[in-house]
Every structure is written in C-alpha cells, then in structure tokens.
Design a protein around this nucleic acid. Structure first.
Length: 317
DNA sequence: TTCCCGTAAT
DNA sequence: ATTACGGGAA
C-alpha cells in the first residue's frame, strides 16, 4: 500500500494515533473488562451512582491517597448528605473540614462548594448527565466531568488521567502527547460502557501498571499485547517535577488555614507564631508578610481580613 | 527528599 | 505554555 493510499484511508494526515492499537481491539477490550469484573478493589464510591457522592469522591481522590479518602468521604457525606446541604453550608465550615482531614488544596473545597451551589441554582439540584455540562461546574475539568458522567450515568467519554496515559504509553507505544492519548483512549473504549470501562482502566493503572509495574503479580490482562511487557522497557511519560514544599508559600498558606479553622478570628500577631516559629511582627516575615498571605487567601475566597477593636484580624470565610 | 496530580489562573 | 496549589506517605 502506498503512502497516498494510507493517507486516503485515514482521511488525510497519515499518522492517526489510532494506528497504535492492535488489530483485535475487541479481544483487548474483553480481556480488560473480564479481568476487572473478575476481581477488583472495593471502594464505597463504587457502590453508588449518586452524582453528588461521586463528585465528592473524585475531587478528594485527585489529591489524596485512596486509603485516606475513604474516611473523609464518609464523614463529608455524613455532614452534608446532599448537594442541597453542601450548597447551604458556610464556606468556612467546608474549608475547615477540608484542612481538618488533610485533604490538600483548600481551593478545591471552595470549588466543590461553588459547584454544589451551581447545581442547585442552575439545575434545581439534579446534576446534568452530559460531560460538557458537567465541565461548566467550578473545579470540574475534563477528567472529573467524564468520571462523574461515567460512574453516575454511564454517559462519559474515556477518561484520560496520568494512570491512563501510563498504560497507553507502555502497552501501545502511544506518543507522549495529550491529543494522541485522548484519541486512542476514545477509540479503545467500547461505546456505551463508560462506567465499567473507565473503572477498569483506572484499576489497571492502579494495581497492575503502576509506576513500578506488577504485570504478573496482578495478572495483567494485556500482557500478550503489551509492548513494554515484550521489551522490558517500562518507561512512563515524564511527570513535571514540583518545587519543594518545605518552607514554601503553599506550606505557609496551609498553616494559616489550619490555624484559622480552630478559631473564629485571630489577630495577625496571634496567627503569626502559629505559622512560623520565627515570627516577629516587625521582622522580614512579620505582620506585613502575613497580611499579604491572608490577602491572597482572601482573593482565593478562603479567608478574609477584618477589624476587631481597631486591630486587624483574619478569619476563614 | 521525592512522589503524587487535575484544575484554574495568567 | 507555565505556574500555583497541600500534605501524607514512601
């Protein structure tokens, strides 16, 4: 077959990333679904199809190890059982819960709170089922939108997170390119089966094709097709390195929120020592530095600066 | 010390 | 396109 024929068959560009997939795609699909259905980890959010409960689990899971999410998820839903309850909550209580359970990025607590208010005000409390509509919710991007659409409504597209990328990169030599991952993941997913499929793909990345893979131990269902298993090269796509956390502004922000979550309001000079042991009001990282930190948190909608008896106080908002 | 990781903001 | 964003666990 000539290059011209190939290009014509593919609609013109001649390098369709779907060419990465093996010819017997149906066998590949069946192997994964059977493997997943035969045995998989049990998580409480896999027992529900409630979109609100699933959204909470997804937002928590994005930043926290699954083992610790279970307790937080349970307590969160116990405190705010429905999207209406969360929408009506005080934001400071939601942020306080978040930091109190070490759930990471406090911004996500605010996003979740705002998303709940959107669902109530724009959809009368009934989540939309379409990924494109879900993506309009605050804090919900392509991954979360498709996860919720899949697990709540069996109505999503293929999710593409770092686990999925690693699997596709290794198994089928998909180039480390977001568009390619998107196209191949979509072509691989059996139509109308997003719930089981996306669960299965993420299970594969979580228990078989981890950073250090355990192909045989986990009984990976794709060994007969997997390029990495064949060559022994289990390189994974590069993940960007992040600046160190110790001593960072992010760490200081976290300490501010943590401290404020235990008080109604705190004067800056009372807050300071809880943020850094070397706090002195007029020092380099003193009152003005702290005021700037809280002002940034205020810009993020997480805290606010106020006045009490003529002195500046900070509180959660 | 390094790893993890999707979204919003710029 | 790049950067900010948390904090436990490995």
């Amino acid at each position: 077959m000539s290059d011209a024929d190939t290009a014509a068959d593919e609609g013109g560009d001649g390098d369709d990333p779907r060419d990465c997939l093996p010819a017997d795609v149906d066998a590949v699909r069946d192997a994964l679904v059977s493997w997943y259905e035969d045995d998989h980890r049990s998580f409480p959010w896999r027992e529900t199809t409630d979109a609100y409960e699933i959204l909470v689990s997804e937002v928590m899971s994005q930043q926290t190890q699954l083992g610790r999410v279970e307790t937080a998820w349970d307590e969160f839903l116990n405190r705010w059982p429905t999207v209406h309850d969360l929408a009506a909550a005080e934001r400071g209580d939601v942020v306080g819960f978040w930091t109190g359970h070490s759930l990471g990025y406090n911004n996500r607590a605010r996003y979740l709170h705002e998303a709940a208010q959107q669902v109530v005000s724009e959809y009368d409390g009934a989540f939309p089922e379409d990924p494109d509509e879900l993506e309009e919710l605050m804090g919900v991007g392509p991954y979360t939108a498709n996860a919720v659409a899949s697990f709540a409504f069996n109505n999503g597209n293929a999710v593409v997170d770092t686990n999925v990328k690693r699997v596709l990169y290794r198994a089928f030599d998909v180039p480390d390119d977001d568009e390619a991952f998107e196209v191949v993941a979509g072509a691989l997913m059996p139509a109308g089966e997003s719930r089981v499929w996306n669960n299965a793909m993420m299970e594969l990345g979580g228990v078989a094709c981890e950073k250090v893979p355990s192909c045989d131990e986990a009984g990976c269902p794709w060994r007969e097709w997997c390029h990495a298993y064949e060559t022994g090269d289990f390189t994974a796509p590069d993940v960007p390195t992040q600046p160190s956390f110790e001593g960072s502004r992010r760490q200081m922000r976290g300490r501010v929120v943590k401290a404020l979550s235990n008080h109604d309001a705190l004067a800056l000079d009372d807050l300071g020592p809880k943020v850094r042991v070397d706090y002195t009001p007029d020092g380099e990282n003193g009152r003005e530095w702290l005021r700037g930190l809280v002002a940034d948190l205020a810009d993020d909608g997480l805290a606010e600066l106020g006045d009490r008896d003529g002195e500046t106080v900070a509180r959660l908002r």
